[in-house]
């Protein structure tokens, strides 16, 4: 019985750890996409965040400084996406693909330059370790995963609720939604479509970079080519599976984290004898396709998603 509890506790802890970067990045994607700008570049924004988190921590000796620098790097890399898609009206998906290329290129180029041709950064001198919340962390089973969690986990959960509040309870959030659903009506009502979209893409860069940083200065402790390996795309899936809603995204990312946790702990708990780990790893993607196809609920994308805004057209 004790063993059984321990297994569940472990699975929950792994779930929360894997969900954390996904929640942050998917919330980033949410801001961008609710404003009408597709962000396939989440992966690249996570890469640059992970890179800068590690390099910043090494340079300053402080993981918190590393996090701040990584947020700045995410904002800087989000800018070319914003300029290309909003100002130059480039295809948003293509631009996002370019951002992914750009991030991997720049980060590995700089790693080799900074660390004499090495394929990874040195181990960071400080990581953002688990912080226990008094009393709550004593709760059996869920205590260790939720209340003795990484600072990034607390940030991710709080960010989901702040996003919810911003989006549905403030004028700024209403403008983001208006711009993403009906930009011309929003413009007529005096909202700057270009301004709101720029801001939304910048916020998405900051959040996705934080998600990336969690991989290099908390969950892991260095940056290399494989530090971010598809999490940006899973975050994108979580965004869709969560129907572009903050709390839906939180739930979807947690569910995907759970699938990863099962795939990873399958060996330990004897699950892999029945279901191969690769099948468990596929699960998030298969479910997302089923969700999109309308077999598992219906995914409703923002109306103006993917369409460049042209003044004076309808």
């Amino acid at each position: 019985m004790g063993d059984y509890m321990q297994v569940v506790t472990n699975i929950l802890m792994t779930t929360v750890i894997y969900a954390t970067p996904l929640v942050l990045a998917a919330l980033g994607g949410l801001f961008s996409e609710r404003s009408g700008v597709v962000n396939i570049g989440l992966e690249g924004l996570m890469i640059i965040g992970a890179f800068m988190g590690a390099v910043g921590t090494i340079a300053t000796g402080s993981a918190w400084m590393g996090l701040i620098l990584s947020i700045i790097a995410g904002i800087i890399l989000a800018l070319p996406h914003a300029v290309a898609t909003i100002t130059f009206k480039a295809d948003q998906v293509v631009s996002g693909v370019a951002i992914n290329f750009l991030a991997l290129g720049i980060s590995m180029y700089l790693v080799k330059y900074l660390y004499n041709g090495a394929g990874q950064t040195p181990v960071v001198p400080e990581t953002l370790d688990r912080v226990a919340i008094p009393f709550l962390s004593e709760i059996p089973v869920i205590g260790p995963s939720l209340f003795q969690a990484l600072p990034f986990t607390y940030i991710a959960i709080i960010a989901a609720f702040i996003t919810y509040f911003l989006l549905y309870r403030t004028a700024f959030g209403m403008r983001i939604r208006a711009v993403g659903e009906h930009p011309h009506a929003a413009e007529t009502a005096g909202v700057s479509v270009v301004g709101i979209r720029y801001l939304a893409v910048i916020i998405s860069g900051a959040l996705a970079a934080m998600g990336g940083a969690s991989l290099s200065i908390a969950i892991g402790s260095e940056f290399n080519q494989a530090t971010v390996a598809g999490q940006g795309f899973i975050a994108l899936a979580a965004l869709i599976f969560g129907k572009w809603r903050p709390l839906g995204v939180l739930g979807a990312a947690t569910f995907f984290g759970f699938a990863v946790a099962l795939a990873l702990t399958g060996q330990l708990i004897g699950l892999s004898a029945y279901v191969p780990s690769e099948i468990l790893s596929m699960l998030p993607y298969i479910l997302t396709i089923l969700a999109l196809a309308g077999f598992v609920g219906r995914a409703e994308a923002p109306n103006a998603l993917g369409k460049p805004y042209e003044k004076g057209t309808r």
Binding site: F88, V94, S95, F101, G105, I106, M108, Y109
Partner: peptide, 24 residues
């Protein structure tokens, strides 16, 4: 020179083509 600079060159080319920079 680290090979990765080529990835940056390719990414920049995609961005420039996508933004249709020359016709602008």
């Amino acid at each position: 020179v680290p090979f990765e600079v080529i990835r940056v060159v390719v990414a920049a080319i995609i961005l420039f083509v996508a933004a249709n920079i020359s016709t602008k």
